[in-house]
Simulated scan of single mutants.
Amino acid sequence: MTVVLGKEMRMVESRARDRMVVAAADMLRRRGLNATSVRELAKHSGAPLGSTYHYFPGGKSQLATEAVRFVDGLVARKLAKDLSAGPVVALREFVDMWRKVVLDSDFRAGCPVLAVSVEDLPDTDDPRLAAAAAFDQWTGLLADSLRAHGAADAVATRTATLIVAALEGCVAICRAQRDTAAMDRTADALEEVVRGVIGHSGG
């Protein structure tokens, strides 16, 4: 099964329920929310359709919500680890992670959190709320690191929001253009901003 965010995804436990969540995240990043059915998710994970509804009685909305939370957790753990080396290093690693996502999928996959955030389901708002929480968490981690390295509070929040928004947008641009040049240019610009707000050229 195709991984979602690199080697971290391959380390997920192999239980049936976990495989369904991973499969949902993979399909969401490729096809979006509304174009993905529970039947297709079951097939993609190799699970019987009945098992899908057994583990996820809330159907597609519950599965999508848990998939977003799963990816949120993966990204947050990676960010937290990278931020221990400083915001500049973490920015580079964050960029490299998304570059790997689009390149490893031959530009067919993006961010499942973004995919869910721009689509609605008629019966629930839970997937979108999970996406909002994910963006909040990533932004918060980045902002905390920027503050710890000398950025003023409001500047840290603004810069962290810029980083997340710019890279999410770059993923979409790279997929459309089948090229990572936009991400490379954006990474350079973001690094310049980060170095400016922390007041020195170090990590």
Results as ranks from 00 to 15, higher is better:
T2K: 14
G6E: 05
E8P: 09
E8L: 15
M11E: 11
R17F: 10
D18C: 11
M20K: 07
V22I: 13
V22Q: 09
A23W: 00
A24Y: 03
A24V: 06
R29K: 09
R30I: 02
R30C: 08
R31F: 12
N34F: 10
R39A: 15
R39H: 12
E40A: 13
A42W: 03
K43I: 13
H44L: 11
P48E: 10
L49F: 11
G50S: 10
G50Q: 07
Y53C: 05
Y53M: 02
Y55C: 01
P57L: 05
A64V: 08
F70Y: 12
F70T: 14
V71T: 02
D72E: 14
L74I: 15
L74C: 11
V75E: 02
V75N: 02
R77T: 08
L79R: 03
D82M: 01
S84R: 11
P87G: 03
V89R: 10
L91W: 03
L91P: 00
D96G: 14
D96Y: 09
M97R: 11
M97N: 10
W98M: 07
K100Y: 11
K100L: 15
V101F: 07
V101W: 04
V102I: 04
L103F: 10
L103S: 09
D104P: 07
D104G: 08
S105R: 06
S105K: 10
F107V: 07
F107I: 02
R108D: 13
R108T: 10
A109H: 08
A115N: 05
V116Y: 06
S117N: 13
S117Y: 11
E119N: 03
E119F: 02
L121K: 00
P122R: 04
D126M: 14
A130V: 01
A131G: 07
A131Q: 06
A132N: 10
A133L: 10
F135G: 13
W138P: 01
T139A: 10
T139D: 09
G140H: 02
A143Q: 00
A143T: 00
A143P: 02
D144Q: 07
A148Q: 01
H149C: 06
H149L: 03
G150E: 00
A151W: 01
D153Y: 10
A154D: 15
V155F: 05
A156H: 05
R158S: 12
A160L: 02
L162R: 13
I163Y: 02
V164E: 08
A165G: 08
A166M: 05
L167S: 08
E168P: 07
C170T: 05
V171F: 01
A172L: 15
A172Q: 15
C174K: 09
Q177S: 12
Q177H: 12
R178S: 12
A182Y: 12
M183E: 08
T186N: 04
D188Y: 13
D188E: 14
D188C: 06
A189T: 12
A189C: 08
L190Y: 04
E191D: 00
G196F: 06
G196P: 06
I198H: 04
H200S: 05
G202P: 00
